[in-house]
Amino acid sequence: MAAEAPPPVAPSEAPSPPKAGPRALAWQRRRRSAARFWQRYRTHRAGVLGLAALTLFALIALTAPLTVGSDVQSVTNAPGRPMESPSAEFPLGTDQFGRSLLGLVVWGSRVSLLVGLLAAVLSVAIGALIGITAGHFRGWFATVMMRITDWFLVMPTLVLAIALATVMSRSLGTIILAIGVTTWPTTARLVRAQTLAVESRPYIERAKALGGGHWHVMSRHVLPNVMPLVLAQTTLIISSAILAEATLAFLGLGDPTVVSWGGLLQDAREAGAVSAGKWWYLVPPGIAIAVVALAFTLCGRAVESVLNPKLGVTL
């Protein structure tokens, strides 16, 4: 006798799909936010062009050990004659020691981009910390912090950076520190204004009424709301940091043991390339600095426009 089939399951008794946990829901929201951000960012043609240029320079910097090798910095094993004009062997000519300028520009991208990125991160971190704390605590603490910020704001940034780089040892860490601790005031003022706007909203009062402390309010409510501003400010400061690094290196305050775009300009000045008409010694690193700074500026403006639609800027 055949076995009887099990009774059909009623629709109300059908197993429901498992519910996603809070962490999975958070990741879904982040993915949707990233997708919306990219869709809006793609409408800014200049921003896409800047991003493509930065991607190219990043690939060049990352692959420099494979494409040109670290031997390109060697002065004793230079393959060419000093100050040789561009040729098939040396497309951008040679420097005062006979090293290939193409290889030096490629290798120098690693130092210039690294210093610009780290200095910008340090600057934005200091500015965001001071801006959030001054906007949250207010009172005498905010007054003192803002007066210090105003002092740094009115002082010439380059002069302060030169002073720090002069009294400290000549190294990449000194350059990063000198740029980072002198360029944060603008970020601090912007973040403080945004913090005041966020803390005036009703849900902040509810969080405090439910027992949320200072750290909870600043980290869970204020910081996520100011992060878009911090991100946009970071992309804008990187270009300024790269220019500042090139300026300090050009003035002879950089690390003489590493190759950077600013250091190449300093070497060209010392070698008399300007008076001798050796344009190939000056143009490549100068163009590289200008293009990277412009690319970061275009990306920063596009990010700022996407994250703050009230600007109404179409790049």
Rank of each mutant, 00 (worst) to 15 (best):
T186W: 05
A61M: 05
F57N: 00
F137N: 03
G180R: 07
G286H: 09
V283P: 09
W38I: 10
S109E: 02
A20V: 13
A165V: 02
W27D: 10
W107K: 06
T133S: 05
T94S: 15
I132C: 01
L122D: 01
G300E: 04
R31F: 10
V144S: 06
V303L: 10
P11K: 07
P91F: 11
E270V: 12
P284S: 11
L282T: 13
G173Y: 11
A34S: 08
A52Q: 07
P7W: 11
V230K: 05
T76H: 12
G116K: 05
A64R: 10
S70I: 12
R99M: 08
I175C: 05
I148M: 11
L160N: 01
I179C: 03
A288W: 05
A20K: 15
S12F: 07
F90H: 13
T55H: 01
T234H: 12
A20N: 14
V217Y: 01
R42V: 12
V222A: 06
R269S: 15
V274S: 13
W215T: 11
T183K: 02
G286V: 11
G173S: 11
E89F: 10
A10L: 15
G103N: 02
R81I: 06
G135M: 05
G139F: 08
R110Q: 15
G116M: 04
I130W: 01
L54T: 14
T314C: 01
L196V: 11
A232D: 12
W280T: 09
Q28Y: 05
P285F: 06
S240V: 11
I242W: 07
T133G: 01
A249S: 15
A197Q: 13
E199M: 09
A142G: 14
A232K: 10
G127T: 04
P228S: 04
L311C: 07
A207K: 03
P309G: 12
I60D: 13
T149S: 08
V159C: 02
L307R: 15
R31T: 09
G127H: 02
W38H: 06
A293M: 08
I176D: 14
P65E: 12
S260N: 05
P256R: 04
E304H: 09
V191N: 06
S275T: 13
T43C: 01
L101Q: 07
N308W: 07
W184K: 00
L264C: 08
A288E: 05
A58R: 02
A293V: 08
A20I: 10
L54A: 15
G272P: 05
A10N: 14
A273K: 09
I162L: 02
L129S: 14
A295H: 07
E4D: 14
P79E: 00
A197P: 04
V230R: 04
P82F: 00
I132S: 00
V292N: 10
V259P: 01
V111C: 04
L253Y: 03
T257R: 10
S85M: 03
N77C: 00
F250K: 03
S100P: 00
V144L: 09
T43F: 03
L54Y: 14
I148S: 06
A120S: 14
T174M: 02
R40H: 13
S12H: 09
T143D: 14
R147G: 04
A34N: 04
S123M: 10
G173H: 11
D267R: 12
S74T: 07
K310H: 13
W215M: 07
H216T: 08
